[in-house]
Simulated assay, not measured.
Amino acid sequence: MRDRLHVTTVARILTVATIAYAPCSLAADAAPWLLYRDANPFVAASGLPFAPPVAAEGWSVEALVDASNTEVAFERGGERLTYDAEIHAARIAVTRAFGPHWLVRATLAELDIGSGFLDGFLEDYHRMFGFSNGDRGRLVTDGHTIRYDDGNVANTVAFDRRLHALSPLLVDLAFRGDASERAEWMAGATVKVPTSHASALVDDRSTDLSLWLALQSTDAQARWPWGARVGLMQRGNTQLLADRANDQVPFADAMIGYRLTPHWDVAAQLQWHAALYDSRVPLLQDAATLALSSAWHADAGWTFRAGLVEDAIPRHAQDVTFFLALSL
């Protein structure tokens, strides 16, 4: 019954998005930002913003599915963390442009935490590139285990089950203006609204506010589209590792693309954030992710993008994430 409820919820979200798409228009010349942020559940349960919203006029819709797989264990002083799980996400973002300057975006996802199906493939993937931390099955867990202990009962995390749940709702409000004939600046705020009591690893129950500034290219003929952003997240009263939570978290994003043809591009997106927790465990410290992708832009106005995300600072973020995205 619980699974059916969440499937129904996602179906309703997709239905609303489809209706919203009817009058939509996507900026073919927009910087190719990827709807992504650090998928580490100790981060994703917070209000850390996704990449900046993009819309030319009217409505735009983005849908993304991804699978993140990680198996790590740490023991640092009195802290112990075991993380062996695969997280699947089906995410939808609906953006509305009001005139030439204002943008509003709402982002929501359905999450599935379990053992997944990528372990064998990722072992081969890591060995192909000579990476030493790719072996799976070393931790002797059931494949959906996330545990943290520092001797403080209030900070203990003991997650050992499959879970389907809604992610927090993130709402972006942005104002943009021309920086030059080929670029625009954007000033925005992102609010995280709690949606789920399923687990603090899905939603830490805080209400977070982020303020940010972005600069990005808008030239439709640019061979090298680009974008950059800096910001600060003010966290609310989190229920996840509350005694170790940092109140303020700076973050920065950068993106660059290359148009191979009028219809085909490749892009790289680097995202960094400071530590959300006062901890000696790498996975709870500052982190950076690097997304590499390629996209096809159809004459009808939609864009299909596929790629992967790696932890740019090893063992500080999710190990590997694969994704497929559709923009309308």
Rank of each mutant, 00 (worst) to 15 (best):
R136Y: 03
G137F: 00
R138D: 07
T141I: 04
T141K: 01
T141F: 05
T141L: 04
T141D: 04
D142V: 01
G143H: 05
I146V: 09
Y148Q: 02
D149N: 14
D150M: 06
G151I: 09
G151W: 13
N155T: 02
T156N: 02
A158V: 02
F159R: 03
D160H: 09
D160I: 00
D160V: 00
R161E: 13
L166F: 06
P168H: 03
P168M: 01
L170F: 12
A174K: 04
F175T: 09
R176K: 08
R176L: 08
G177K: 04
D178I: 01
A179P: 01
A179K: 00
R182K: 13
A183Q: 06
A183Y: 09
A183W: 06
W185A: 08
W185G: 07
M186Y: 09
M186P: 03
A187F: 15
G188C: 13
A189G: 15
S196A: 15
H197C: 11
S199I: 10
S199A: 15
V202C: 10
D203M: 10
D204M: 10
D204R: 12
R205Q: 15
T207Y: 12
D208G: 04
L209Y: 10
L211S: 11
L211V: 15
W212P: 10
A214M: 05
A214Q: 04
A214G: 09
L215S: 00
L215E: 01
D219Q: 13
A220N: 12
Q221L: 06
W224V: 14
V230G: 15
G231R: 08
L232W: 12
Q234H: 13
Q234W: 15
N237W: 05
N237L: 06
N237E: 08
T238A: 12
T238G: 12
L240G: 11
A245F: 05
V249T: 08
V249E: 02
